[in-house]
Computed example of a mutant assay.
Amino acid sequence: MKNLREFLERKYLAQPGDNYSMEQIADDILGQLDVNQENYFDVTGFAKDFYLSPSLTQDKKRSFYKELKTKDFFKRLNNRLYADHFSICSWTIYIIGKFSNNENAFFLETAYETNFSLTNPMLSYRCLNELSWLNSKKVSKYLAGLELENSNTSKLILLYYWESVNNSSQFNQLLADKELLGFISPNQLLLNEEAISDRLLGFENYVSGLYNSTGSNKLDKIEFGNIAKNYFGRYQ
């Protein structure tokens, strides 16, 4: 169905909960979830927006969340964390995080430990970002592990993470690392924070496109580091 998200918003957000029960809305969402790949983005995006809608009362929010949980909505999202498609994994991380319930941190923690930290550095930082949003107690351990690894790839993950959570002190502390700065800017060591952020954004977009073009999420830290080295080495 074209514009499914817009259709669901018109149907349910115009008068949220007045014409439909939370069970009916949750049933509709679950029924549409696996119809096709395009539906997945629209339906999960709508579910998140509906839950966060300021026009929904707290009682209705709790009821809607309970219905989704009972119908295994979050368990089905969890399965998508292990999909081959980069965009689906990345989107799923975001959706699980933005539902803002700490109990769902378990899904992201498991995916980080068994999947992203081993095969996908870019999704690692995005997962850490949402785990921070969910107040996961494991984030500090994951960050310490990256610091202990002390590779250019682990430093790059940390740089993305601290930038995403707006921690300028940690971000700038990393930029004081001459090895990392030389890795990001091998031909021009003196860069301001804005120029570094531009390079990071450019590389993130490049790697995202690379993952999606190959149809695979698997890229270990050594491969990732080599791609980063080549990218930053020819960055204009």
Results as ranks from 00 to 15, higher is better:
Ala83Phe: 07
Asp27Lys: 15
Ser21Phe: 02
Gln24Ile: 04
Ile25His: 02
Asp59Tyr: 11
Tyr65Gln: 00
Phe73Asn: 01
Lys66Arg: 15
Val35Cys: 08
Phe73Trp: 02
Leu56Pro: 03
Lys60Ser: 09
Leu13Pro: 10
Leu30Arg: 08
Leu77Trp: 00
Lys60Asp: 07
Asn36Ala: 14
Leu33Gly: 09
Arg10Asn: 12
Leu30Ser: 03
Ser63Thr: 02
Phe50Ser: 07
Asp18Pro: 09
Gln58Ser: 14
Leu68His: 05
Thr70Cys: 07
Asn79Cys: 08
Lys71Gln: 12
Ala14Glu: 12
Tyr12Pro: 12
Asn36Leu: 09
Arg62Gln: 10
Asp34Ile: 06
Leu56Asp: 04
Asp42Thr: 05
Ala47Phe: 04
Gly17Phe: 00
Phe46Met: 06
Asp59Val: 12
Tyr40Arg: 14
Lys11His: 13
Tyr82Ala: 00
Asp84Tyr: 14
Glu9Pro: 05
Ile25Glu: 00
Ala83Tyr: 01
Asp34Leu: 02
Lys71His: 08
Gln15Ala: 10
Leu33Phe: 10
Phe50Tyr: 14
Gln32His: 05
Lys11Leu: 01
Val43Gln: 02
Leu52Thr: 12
Ala14Gln: 11
Val43Gly: 00
Lys75Arg: 15
Lys11Ser: 02
Leu30Asn: 03
Thr70Leu: 12
Phe64His: 01
Arg80Gly: 08
Tyr65Ala: 09
Arg76Pro: 11
Tyr51Met: 00
Tyr12Cys: 06
Glu38Cys: 14
Ala83Arg: 11
Asn36Trp: 01
Asp27Arg: 15
Ile25Gly: 07
Leu52Cys: 09
Leu30Asp: 01
Thr70Ala: 08
Gly45Thr: 02
Phe41Ser: 14
Arg80His: 08
Asp59Cys: 11
Tyr12Arg: 03
Leu30Met: 15
Gln24Trp: 08
Gly31Phe: 10
Asp27Ile: 10
Met22Thr: 04
Glu23Gly: 04
Arg76Tyr: 05
Gln24Pro: 04
Tyr40Ile: 11
Tyr82Pro: 06
Lys48Ala: 05
Arg10Pro: 07
Ser21Arg: 06
Phe64Cys: 04
Leu68Met: 10
Phe74Glu: 04
Leu13Gln: 14
Leu33His: 03
Val43Thr: 15
Lys69Phe: 13
Asp72Pro: 09
Tyr65Thr: 04
Ala83Ser: 12
Thr70Glu: 10
Tyr12Leu: 05
Leu68Gly: 00
Ile29Leu: 03
Asp34Ser: 12
Phe74Asp: 06
Ile29Lys: 01
Gln24Asn: 13
Thr44Cys: 00
Gly45Phe: 09
Gln15Phe: 07
Leu30Val: 12
Leu56Gln: 04
Tyr82Arg: 00
Asp42Asn: 14
Asn39His: 14
Leu33Met: 11
Asn79Gln: 15
Phe64Lys: 01
Gly31Ile: 08
Asp84Ile: 06
Asp72Arg: 01
Phe73Val: 13
Leu30Pro: 01
Ser55Pro: 08
Leu56Trp: 00
Ala26Gln: 03
Lys66Pro: 03
Val35Phe: 10
Asn78Gln: 14
Lys69Trp: 03
Phe46Ile: 10
Lys11Gln: 07
Leu52Ala: 15
Leu33Ile: 08
Asp27His: 14
Leu52Arg: 13
Phe41Glu: 00
Leu81Ser: 00
Asp84Pro: 09
Lys66Tyr: 06
Tyr51Ile: 02
Leu81Gln: 02
Phe64Gly: 02
Asn39Val: 13
Asn36Thr: 06
Asp49Gln: 06
Tyr40Ala: 09
